[in-house]
Simulated assay, not measured.
Amino acid sequence: MENTHILFWLVKDISWCMIWKTLGLLMVVPTLGIAIVIAWRTRAYKSELAHNLAIVFWITANSYWMGSEFFGFDTVQVAPHVTGKHLALVPFLIGLGILAYYYLVQKPREGRIAAVAKL
């Protein structure tokens, strides 16, 4: 499943690069869908879940950005100094926040629990 996921992701991004709108938009569904399934399947492993959720939000942001360019609202000003494309920062930052939480809070906590268990 992970290898198929990479194939769909590459086709989506190649379609974006080549401005093949229909194929690019169609590839969002399997690319994002498989990423969600992978995250769900790894939910018991905090490290894997954090990284796979970050990928889900990365693909979401990437797909939104692609759509903003395809539909021409990437340069539309939605707030001072903020364009439609900049809104892709929301899911990018959510993914980054998930990873920051994992590395700054969860992983150190796991290390302390493992150290106590050895005592």
Rank of each mutant, 00 (worst) to 15 (best):
residue 106 Q to R: 13
residue 8 F to G: 01
residue 14 I to D: 02
residue 58 W to F: 15
residue 27 M to R: 07
residue 26 L to V: 12
residue 24 G to E: 06
residue 44 A to T: 12
residue 34 I to H: 09
residue 45 Y to V: 00
residue 20 W to G: 03
residue 2 E to I: 07
residue 13 D to I: 07
residue 107 K to V: 04
residue 115 A to D: 10
residue 17 C to K: 05
residue 98 I to H: 03
residue 8 F to S: 00
residue 1 M to Q: 08
residue 78 V to R: 00
residue 46 K to H: 14
residue 70 F to K: 02
residue 59 I to Y: 07
residue 77 Q to T: 13
residue 10 L to V: 12
residue 103 Y to A: 05
residue 94 I to W: 02
residue 106 Q to D: 14
residue 63 S to N: 03
residue 13 D to F: 00
residue 50 A to N: 09
residue 72 G to L: 12
residue 38 I to W: 02
residue 32 L to I: 12
residue 115 A to T: 13
residue 100 A to G: 08
residue 66 M to Q: 11
residue 82 V to M: 04
residue 96 L to H: 06
residue 9 W to Y: 12
residue 9 W to Q: 01
residue 33 G to E: 13
residue 108 P to I: 07
residue 96 L to E: 11
residue 82 V to D: 00
residue 34 I to W: 04
residue 37 V to Q: 11
residue 113 I to T: 13
residue 102 Y to H: 08
residue 116 V to Q: 07
residue 16 W to V: 06
residue 8 F to N: 01
residue 3 N to P: 00
residue 118 K to M: 11
residue 95 G to M: 12
residue 2 E to N: 15
residue 118 K to Q: 14
residue 73 F to L: 09
residue 115 A to I: 11
residue 111 G to F: 10
residue 111 G to R: 10
residue 91 P to H: 04
residue 88 A to M: 05
residue 59 I to R: 01
residue 33 G to F: 15
residue 38 I to L: 15
residue 78 V to A: 06
residue 89 L to V: 08
residue 33 G to D: 14
residue 102 Y to C: 06
residue 29 V to I: 15
residue 56 V to R: 01
residue 37 V to W: 15
residue 86 H to Q: 10
residue 16 W to T: 05
residue 24 G to K: 11
residue 92 F to I: 13
residue 117 A to T: 14
residue 35 A to P: 14
residue 7 L to V: 02
residue 55 I to K: 01
residue 116 V to M: 06
residue 23 L to S: 08
residue 60 T to R: 01
residue 42 T to K: 15
residue 61 A to V: 05
residue 12 K to H: 15
residue 16 W to N: 01
residue 82 V to R: 04
residue 51 H to E: 03
residue 41 R to S: 11
residue 39 A to R: 02
residue 48 E to A: 15
residue 43 R to K: 13
